[in-house]
Structures are given as structure tokens and as C-alpha cells.
Simulated scan of single mutants.
Amino acid sequence: MAENETEPTLALKIGTIVLTFAAGWAAQKALALIWKQVTGKDAPTKPDDPDLDLVQATVFAAAAAGTAVLAKRVAARGAQRAAARIAARSARHTA
């Protein structure tokens, strides 16, 4: 257990990293699917592509950034909840 209760444990840090990567991957796939349905074109993969419209590039960048922040926050919250459940379960078993 961590010396300071506010200090995240190693398990929480690793869980947050794993969940962040998983949430980011899922968010990227969802954004690409939604982009294709809305615009009828594949999601941009190269921001310096000369065929990419500036407005499209800007809108996609904003949507991708917002999706990344949302995914990171959801993953962090999920990792904290999972760690709390695990800690509570461990406390019940040791008590």
C-alpha cells in the first residue's frame, strides 16, 4: 500500500496507462467511423496532405483532440474506480 493515501499506487498508474491506451484506440476507431459517416471520406491521417482542405483538417484536429481528452479522463476515472474496488476487496479479505 502507498505510504501516502493520496499517492497513486503502481497498480493504479499501470492500470491508468493501459486503460488510456485502450480508450484512445477505441476513441480513434470511433472517430474515424463517425468521420466517414458524416463526410463520406476517410479520416485524415496526414495533416500536411496538400489535398486536405484546411477547414476539414482543423475540424478533424479539434474533434481528435477533444476525443483524446475525453478518453484519457474516462480511462483515469475507470482506473481509480477499479483500484478502489480492488483495495476494498483486499481490505475485506485481510480483516
Rank of each mutant, 00 (worst) to 15 (best):
A2F: 09
E3D: 14
E3C: 14
T6H: 13
T6A: 14
E7R: 10
E7V: 11
L10D: 10
A11V: 09
L12C: 05
L12Q: 01
I14N: 03
I14Y: 03
T16A: 00
T20W: 02
T20Y: 01
T20I: 05
T20E: 13
T20S: 07
F21T: 14
A22W: 11
A23C: 11
G24T: 02
A27V: 04
Q28E: 14
A30N: 07
A32H: 05
A32I: 02
A32E: 03
L33S: 10
I34P: 06
W35F: 05
W35T: 02
Q37Y: 14
G40F: 01
G40N: 00
K41M: 12
K41N: 12
P44S: 00
P44N: 01
P44H: 00
T45L: 08
T45P: 08
T45E: 08
T45Q: 11
K46L: 11
P50R: 05
D51T: 07
D51W: 07
D51M: 12
L52S: 02
L54V: 15
L54Y: 15
V55G: 12
V55K: 06
V55N: 10
Q56C: 09
Q56D: 15
A57G: 04
T58Q: 05
V59P: 09
V59L: 02
A62K: 06
A63E: 02
A63N: 03
A64C: 07
A65E: 12
A65V: 12
A65M: 13
A65P: 12
G66F: 01
V69I: 13
L70D: 08
L70P: 13
A71I: 09
A71M: 02
K72V: 15
R73F: 13
V74M: 09
A75M: 03
R77H: 12
Q80N: 08
A82C: 04
A82M: 10
A83H: 05
A83W: 03
A83N: 06
A84Q: 06
I86Y: 04
I86F: 03
A87R: 03
A88F: 03
S90M: 11
A91D: 01
A91P: 11
A91S: 03
R92P: 13
R92Q: 08
R92C: 06
R92N: 09
H93F: 15
H93S: 15
T94A: 13
T94I: 15
T94F: 15
T94W: 15
A95F: 14
